[in-house]
Amino acid sequence: MGRTLLSILLLIALPAAAQIYKYTDASGNTVYSDHAPDGVQAQPVELPPLNSVQPQAPSPPSSDTPSPAPARNAYEVLELTGLPTEEALRANNGTFTVSVLIKPRLQPPHQLRLLLDDAPYGQPSNVPILQLVNVDRGEHRLAVQVINGETIIQQSPAVVFTVQRVHKP
């Protein structure tokens, strides 16, 4: 069975490898054919090789292109701690600290970046205790992102909290 199939495939492929001829017919038209007609001077046509695509191994990423982000949820635990959710946070000058619970430990070159009201806040850091300064009173949303340069690796759920600032006369 295997030889028969191979023979059939070879017979099918033979016409594709046939010679092409060029000649001029009685009306003066140029004609291309796979056989030379009798009594007409035909010239064989040299065809360029067929286009082919060679598989290529993927090239290693260059240092100019950002490395792809690690798999989603590279960290098992990423959350903010130290923020009251049931009562207002008393910070008369609007300054307070939050802690980041992250497991496993933050891996270099990853950094932590706070998002206050869905906007980046402060400078990225590799320290899991972050300070906020002069935050206005009222309700806010706070989250933390793990970043690698400008690439967001993972983001914690947002925590909604209220800042209470009391001024003494």
Rank of each mutant, 00 (worst) to 15 (best):
M1I: 09
M1G: 14
M1T: 11
G2R: 12
G2F: 04
G2H: 02
T4H: 08
T4R: 14
L6V: 12
L6M: 07
S7K: 08
L9D: 12
L11T: 11
I12E: 01
I12R: 02
I12V: 14
A13P: 05
A16W: 14
A16V: 13
Q19H: 09
I20Y: 02
Y23G: 01
T24M: 06
D25K: 04
D25A: 04
A26P: 01
S27E: 11
S27W: 01
S27G: 05
V31W: 06
V31R: 13
Y32L: 14
S33Q: 08
D38F: 01
G39T: 03
V40G: 00
V40P: 07
Q41W: 00
A42T: 02
Q43V: 14
Q43C: 00
P44D: 01
P44I: 01
P48M: 02
L50Y: 03
N51T: 08
S52P: 00
V53T: 06
Q56P: 00
A57G: 04
A57R: 14
S59E: 06
P60Y: 06
P60H: 05
P61L: 12
D64T: 10
T65L: 07
P70E: 05
A71N: 08
N73P: 00
A74M: 02
E76D: 15
E79L: 09
L80A: 08
T81E: 11
T81N: 11
G82T: 04
G82A: 02
E86I: 12
E87Q: 14
E87P: 00
E87H: 09
L89E: 01
R90I: 13
N92G: 02
T95K: 13
V100Q: 01
V100L: 03
R105S: 12
L106G: 04
L106A: 06
L106E: 05
P109W: 10
Q111R: 15
Q111I: 09
L112M: 10
R113L: 15
L115H: 12
D118C: 02
P120L: 09
P124H: 13
P124N: 03
S125A: 08
N126T: 11
P128M: 09
I129T: 15
N134F: 02
V135I: 07
V135M: 04
D136E: 15
R137E: 01
R137K: 14
R137L: 00
G138I: 00
G138L: 01
E139A: 14
E139Q: 10
H140E: 00
L142W: 09
L142I: 13
A143M: 04
V144F: 11
I147K: 04
N148V: 08
N148M: 13
G149K: 09
G149P: 10
I153Q: 02
Q155C: 02
Q155I: 08
S156G: 05
A158H: 03
V160D: 05
F161K: 02
T162V: 05
T162Y: 05
V163H: 10
R165D: 04
R165T: 13
V166M: 09
P169H: 10
